[in-house]
């Protein structure tokens, strides 16, 4: 219980800071909308084409949005040496990881909650079904589990902004495949059973990377 109380304290602190500056949510949201608009121009106006490319462009957009927002996740911790301050606290390194995962997840879900309806509106597709929302939430958990680990790593390197996408994108390929396929089937009006194996891959990815990142996080932040 004490573990979660401290996790929530870290998340609350991040949320408070975000409410003041809107640094992550606002800028990433604008980016997301711009990408959606550009995809519309790139693929033309034909509804058949849009149905074909929508799942792909949705997940490319969210993957890039994830890179952008996760890149910022550890910057406030670095500015006044706060990460060292946290490491001097009587908490395990894992609490820091979980706290940052929860706050990044929160920010990403807020961004997606605004972007999905706009996506639905612009692409003229039923994006707001329970199926698509489930796929989105589960995939975002996977993004954030891996991304938080690599974000902590990237912030300690010389080329911060470049390191995260280079590490993040190849690792998340399987969950992106899963999300694209599953949401494609969901948008085509197929049943849950039709994409259950894709959901299985998404959930497996989440579980494996939450555990793996939890275990190795201490090695990233500790000298």
């Amino acid at each position: 219980m004490n573990f979660w109380r401290k996790v929530i304290a870290i998340t609350w602190k991040d949320a408070l800071s975000e409410m003041r500056t809107r640094e992550i949510i606002f800028s990433v949201l604008v980016f997301t909308l711009l990408v959606i608009v550009i995809f519309n121009f790139a693929f033309g106006t034909s509804q058949e084409v849009i149905v074909l490319v929508a799942p792909g462009s949705l997940w490319v957009t969210f993957a890039f949005a994830g890179v952008l927002s996760l890149n910022r996740a550890f910057i406030p911790e670095k500015e006044q040496g706060c990460l060292e301050g946290l490491m001097a606290c009587p908490i395990s390194r894992e609490i820091i990881y979980v706290g940052k995962v929860v706050s990044s997840l929160l920010f990403m879900l807020i961004i997606e909650a605004i972007a999905l309806p706009i996506f639905a509106f612009l692409f003229n597709l039923p994006m707001l079904s329970l199926q698509v929302i489930t796929i989105t939430v589960l995939t975002t958990v996977g993004f954030v589990a891996v991304g938080t680990l690599f974000s902590a790593l990237a912030v300690n390197t010389k080329a911060r902004e470049m390191v995260l996408p280079i590490l993040f994108l190849p690792i998340v390929v399987p969950i992106i495949i899963g999300a694209v396929e599953a949401s494609g089937l969901a948008l085509a009006g197929e049943s849950w059973a039709s994409f259950s194996s894709w959901l299985g891959i998404i959930v497996a990815f989440d579980a494996i990377f939450l555990v793996a990142s939890f275990l190795v996080f201490a090695f990233v932040v500790e000298e």
Binding site: A9, S17, P76, E79, Q80, C89, P90
Partner: peptide, 28 residues
């Protein structure tokens, strides 16, 4: 242990009170 470094370990976007409140939670 209490640590004071040349870096403050404080979050610039939070108020002094919020910073202290956050660290009190960390130290119970």
């Amino acid at each position: 242990i209490g640590v004071v470094s040349h870096q403050t370990f404080l979050y610039g976007n939070l108020t002094a009170y919020e910073n202290l409140e956050f660290y009190s939670r960390m130290y119970d």
